[in-house]
Design a protein around this nucleic acid. Structure first.
Length: 809
RNA sequence: GCGGACGUGGCGGAAUUGGCAGACGCGCCAGACUUAGGAUCUGGUGGGCUUCCCGUGCAGGUUCAAGUCCUGUCGUCCGCACCA
């Protein structure tokens, strides 16, 4: 028998799969809903290729898909290309190749790399976001949103990446830096297309409850949406008609409001400055506008300036001074706050710094109120210094105050969200043109459906301009058009969409990718969707995953799909890192390429090692050396199994049946629990046991061989096909069904019971599995002998598990 | 500061309901086969003062029995962060 030659075996089956002679065929018309598994985001063809970290997600989703195929499900496991956007465009600019050309080349390369993984993708379902037949529907969705009033234009200071030379969504700014390139984000006043994702805030929040997603991601989305309950309160400005409206979550502390702070961007900011304070106020407003996001985040020392004006506290009619400070955010709530220094850390700090009065209105013990050394921030106590409210419990008042204020006409109950509308336009070339025409008579008009796709024109210069204009703005013959409504000369919108536009709905298109009349047919959408399990890293928790949910809800509202959530279950796999947990990247020089490993150890070995490195949901440091162990295991399995097919047939016996069942049990239950790393160790453990049995028997029996081939197939498909063929099996191993296990057959005739004295193991008792309690205790006492010296107080026997003697010395 | 996850041999990591801590693998040690070994195979491998004792970050607690449950505490990593 020849030793395991992975290269020969893998080439053989790779070729057969390519020739399509033995591909797994699943039953399209099975009675159960097909299972749909998908990677969290399809790859963007960047030109860098895949590293071993990318492999992990692909392998996990493939193993699961193949397992479900073997269980008889019709499995949808598609793949496609997220090819618009910055990475593809930046690569093209760097290489000096038009993005359309470099994208096509990169797709070809990365497809070859993905084929190395030997995953069962249905390439007939392939989609590509840069294909006009695809982005026709990306544009169609935008046009529908425009019709529904969810896409609108607005000019305001947006996040601007000076390196990428484009505007960014809030979700794309991480620690004040560009999510893509790490450059510090600045503000730029620009006319933008916005998507009104805030209109869906409540639904996006509430429907999180329906999802089988990791807690962490649910939490991140919940925080990002950031719903809070409170009240708006009206503070008339003393000696003026103006009123300042503030938002507060603690209207119960209204009597303690001793000053007001407006953000420097507030409409009234400079208006409120009295003559003697005007210079200081104007200087402060100017200084704030110069501050970058990062400065504003990092510099937590409170600064501020007094306007000279006062408001009237609507409850106690006290005069309270109005200040400006940049710790108040312009775009949250009303951009103005009432300050209760006694019960808010930030207000406390501000009051201390500028010598403003502090009035405590909640006390743990009203009869014993000392001076506060820090803010008392929890609503847990009795109201004091609060007029009619004195004596009430603050936790009750916190609930009632919004309505009491509303009845008095000095405010109203309100909810607020941190979620902001989505800055949707990009000043870049490589994206879907926004299908809007600006008409002097009709205003903004959506490009009619019959004119979609609105093709991205070829240009000579596709580099970003940096002026806030897209490169498309320079193409007069494209920009100038006529209004589809009135026929007047009009101009096209020249901004493009962000990369998220194409990736927010691609999972819908896979199942009906050639449909020219609809985004997806109703029948196919309801037959195959939503996605049963979505697999990927945590990095899209508030980007892609939030956007896709929003898109899906919108498409539900306009009747395209009949479900509101796209991904029922989400599995977050951990990242594969280089040494010391450093993220793999070209610049760090710690990228491990799968190519050499596939050549030297085989695809099957690499697939199994990707799982064996650690629990799939945790990060794992890559260490090349570990793959030796998996390769040795496959060699052992080969020797055992192929030998057995070549030697005299072996009859099955009790021991072989027992180990076979234990193996199937271990693999099945661990797979079901998604403990993929321990599935591999289970294979190793029981393969060693089978090898021991095989020594005296000259091999293992045919049933064991066949079952082994089937359960190995999701993990090491090449080797499994080879074993299956050698056992005389017909067709592909993937046409077989997953074997059942018999728990009865797993039982041993002799069991080993640990004998403990006072909870510490002091001996072992090997005894027939049918021995009764008395026998076991007696034999146990005998075995331990003088280790039991002392007074025996208690004997505990847990059937089949353990014996514990409690002895007093 | 808030929220979450995690702390187990030299390393990656195992351990249903509390029931033999360290499965499986890497590495290391010894041996076999070899002209050779960074190939392959076999055996060993938590620590110690080795008839016995100690060991799952640390300190307590509950229990016949704790990696697992409870209280406190320290550390690492991640996410959010002036959201009123």
């Amino acid at each position: 028998m020849a030793a395991y030659n992975h290269a020969a075996v893998e080439k053989k089956w790779h070729d057969r799969w390519e020739e399509n002679t033995v591909n797994p065929k699943t039953d399209e018309n099975g009675k159960e809903k097909p299972k749909y598994y998908c990677l969290d985001m399809f790859p963007y063809p960047s030109g860098n290729g895949l590293h071993v970290g990318h492999w992990r997600g692909y392998v996990i989703s493939d193993v699961w898909s193949r397992y479900k195929i073997l269980q008889g499900y019709h499995v949808i496991h598609p793949m496609g290309w997220d090819a618009f956007g910055l990475p593809a465009e930046n690569y093209a600019i760097k290489m000096g190749i038009h993005p359309a050309i470099s994208t096509e080349e990169n797709i070809k390369n990365i497809k070859e790399q993905i084929k190395q993984i030997a995953a069962v993708y249905d390439w007939d379902m392939e989609v590509n976001t840069t294909d006009p037949d695809y982005y026709k529907w990306t544009q169609w969705i935008f046009a529908k949103m425009f019709e529904a009033g969810l896409a609108y234009e607005k000019e305001f200071p947006i996040n601007w990446c000076p390196s990428c030379k484009t505007g960014l969504a809030n979700e794309e700014v991480v620690d004040g830096k560009c999510e893509r390139c790490g450059t510090e984000v600045t503000k730029k006043n620009l006319r933008q297309w916005m998507l009104k994702i805030t209109a869906y805030a409540d639904r996006l929040l509430n429907d999180l409850k329906k999802l089988d997603w990791p807690e962490k991601v649910i939490k991140m989305q919940t925080d990002w949406i950031g719903k809070s309950y409170g009240a708006e309160v009206y503070f008339p400005v003393d000696g003026s008609d103006e009123t300042i409206t503030v938002y507060t979550t603690r209207p119960d502390t209204l009597y303690g409001a001793t000053f007001m702070v407006l953000s420097p961007e507030h409409d009234l900011a400079s208006k409120l400055a009295t003559d003697e304070n005007r210079d200081a106020v104007e200087a402060y407003i100017k200084a704030s506008s110069m501050k970058s996001n990062v400065d504003r985040l990092q510099d937590k020392d409170k600064t501020g300036v007094f306007t000279g004006s006062y408001c009237i506290n609507p409850l106690n009619k006290e005069k309270v001074p109005i200040w400006l400070s940049d710790y108040v955010l312009a775009d949250y709530g009303t951009g103005a706050i009432m300050c209760v220094p006694a019960h808010d850390d930030r207000d406390f700090e501000f009051a201390k710094k500028f010598g403003l009065p502090i009035v405590q209105v909640i006390a743990e013990d009203p009869d014993n109120v000392g001076e506060l050394t820090e803010a008392y921030t929890i609503a847990n106590g009795v109201m004091i210094n609060s007029g009619d409210w004195n004596g009430m419990r603050s936790e009750d008042l916190k609930e009632q105050a919004p309505h009491m204020i509303e009845e008095q006409g000095i405010g109203k109950a309100t909810v607020n969200f941190k979620l902001r509308d989505w800055v949707f336009s990009r000043q870049r070339y490589w994206g879907e043109p926004i299908p809007i025409i600006h008409c002097p008579n009709c205003g903004n008009v959506a490009v009619p459906e019959k004119d979609l796709p609105l093709r991205l024109p070829d240009v000579d210069s596709y580099e970003p301009t940096g002026t806030g204009e897209s490169p498309l703005a320079g193409i007069d013959e494209w920009v100038n058009t006529t209004c589809p409504v009135c026929g007047a000369p009009a101009k096209r919108e020249t901004n493009t969409m962000p990369q998220w536009a194409g990736s927010s709905w691609y999972f819908l298109r896979y199942v009906d990718n050639h449909n020219n009349d609809e985004l997806v047919s109703k029948e196919k959408a309801s037959k195959y969707l939503p996605v049963d399990m979505y697999i990927g890293g945590v990095e899209h928790a508030v980007l892609h995953l939030l956007y896709s949910r929003f898109y899906t809800k919108f498409l539900y509202d306009i009747g395209v799909v009949d479900f509101e959530e796209p991904f029922l279950k989400l599995f977050n796999q951990g990242m594969i890192t280089g040494k010391n947990g450093v993220k793999m990247s070209k610049s760090k020089g710690n990228v491990v390429s799968p190519d050499d490993l596939v050549r030297d150890y085989g695809c099957d070995a690499l697939r199994m090692y990707e799982l064996f490195v650690g629990p799939p949901q945790l990060d794992a440091e890559w260490d090349d050396r570990g793959i030796d162990g998996v390769r040795r295991f496959l060699g052992k399995a080969w020797n055992l199994l192929i030998d057995s097919t070549e030697n005299e047939p072996v009859e099955e016996d009790e021991d072989l049946i027992r180990v076979r069942n234990k193996l199937i049990y271990a693999v099945t239950t661990r797979l079901e629990a998604f403990n993929l790393n321990t599935v591999i160790s289970g294979f190793m453990e029981y393969t060693n046991e089978l090898a021991n049995l095989a020594k005296s028997r000259g091999g293992v029996d045919l049933k064991t061989l066949k079952d082994y081939a089937v359960i190995l197939a999701p993990f090491a498909p090449h080797l499994a096909e080879e074993i299956w063929e050698k056992t005389g099996g017909k067709g592909s191993v993937f046409a077989q069904s997953w074997p059942a296990y018999d728990e009865k057959a797993m039982e041993e005739s002799m069991i080993t019971i640990p004998l403990q004295v006072n909870g510490k193991t002091r001996g072992l008792l090997k005894i027939g599995a049918d021995a009764d309690k008395e026998t076991i205790l007696e034999k146990g006492r005998e075995t331990l002998g003088k280790k039991l010296d002392g007074t025996l107080i208690k004997e505990i026997y847990v059937p089949g598990k353990i014996v514990n003697f409690v002895v007093k010395k």
